[in-house]
Simulated assay, not measured.
Amino acid sequence: MPYLSWLTREEDIRSASQAAYRLLKEVPEHGAGDPNSENMLIQGDNLEALKALLPYYAGKVKCIYIDPPYNTKSAFEHYDDSLEHTTWLSMMVPRLELLRELLAEDGSIWVSIDDNEGHYLKVIMDEVFGRGNFVANVLWQKRTSPDARATLGAAHDHIIVHAKCVDKLKDKFNKIP
């Protein structure tokens, strides 16, 4: 199976297991709704947040959707979307490793991305989740305008879908009641 290689690859793969466990701390003044709900809003570094969720939710999450930086060199107030490519890979790999641990055996992960990193993301996800657990590359049209139809261009984005164990999930996909 092909895999991506970059300078810090091996240490990036290990970084998921080396991330420190942090305790989640409730901040009552930021709470809303039913305090007995299992819903949470976590503020902080997402690698540390994922690691903090593992003791509670490892192997229990049925569906994960993430919308990582597309790495389009755009300016956003809350995160850097202009990472050097290997830095982007270094950020994604440990997070995908932890997300895999959170997934239930019949769970799936859906990752939104565009053409800038989509093909690299597919290869990384094949490596982390197993190529045989690839479900689909869902294309969605993000704009419809005369300009989008006039020339070849980026009128669509991708949602790359993998299962933790596709055999436990394949009978559940594409079922419409």
Results as ranks from 00 to 15, higher is better:
residue 80 D to S: 05
residue 166 V to T: 02
residue 80 D to A: 06
residue 129 F to N: 02
residue 36 N to A: 06
residue 160 I to N: 09
residue 38 E to P: 05
residue 26 E to V: 05
residue 104 A to M: 04
residue 148 A to F: 02
residue 135 V to G: 10
residue 27 V to C: 06
residue 70 Y to D: 07
residue 64 I to G: 14
residue 129 F to C: 03
residue 53 L to C: 08
residue 104 A to Q: 02
residue 100 R to F: 09
residue 69 P to N: 05
residue 34 D to E: 05
residue 29 E to D: 06
residue 37 S to V: 03
residue 161 V to Y: 01
residue 126 D to Y: 03
residue 90 S to Q: 03
residue 92 M to W: 00
residue 147 D to V: 13
residue 65 Y to C: 15
residue 29 E to F: 04
residue 87 T to A: 11
residue 148 A to S: 14
residue 32 A to M: 12
residue 164 K to D: 07
residue 130 G to K: 11
residue 40 M to T: 08
residue 19 A to V: 12
residue 7 L to R: 15
residue 159 I to H: 00
residue 148 A to T: 05
residue 96 L to I: 13
residue 75 A to Q: 11
residue 35 P to L: 14
residue 109 I to C: 14
residue 76 F to M: 04
residue 106 D to S: 03
residue 47 L to Q: 11
residue 153 G to F: 10
residue 62 K to M: 02
residue 115 D to I: 02
residue 45 D to A: 07
residue 79 Y to K: 10
residue 141 Q to A: 03
residue 131 R to I: 01
residue 60 K to Q: 03
residue 20 A to C: 03
residue 131 R to A: 13
residue 112 S to F: 07
residue 30 H to E: 09
residue 58 A to P: 04
residue 34 D to L: 01
residue 5 S to D: 11
residue 24 L to F: 07
residue 137 N to I: 12
residue 47 L to Y: 01
residue 134 F to W: 10
residue 78 H to R: 13
residue 79 Y to E: 05
residue 99 L to F: 05
residue 87 T to L: 12
residue 172 K to F: 09
residue 137 N to S: 14
residue 66 I to G: 13
residue 115 D to Y: 14
residue 113 I to R: 03
residue 23 L to S: 14
residue 121 L to D: 01
residue 92 M to G: 00
residue 150 A to E: 06
residue 27 V to G: 07
residue 88 W to K: 10
residue 162 H to M: 08
residue 92 M to T: 05
residue 136 A to R: 04
residue 63 C to M: 14
residue 37 S to E: 01
residue 99 L to D: 03
residue 46 N to V: 06
residue 177 P to C: 08
residue 168 K to N: 08
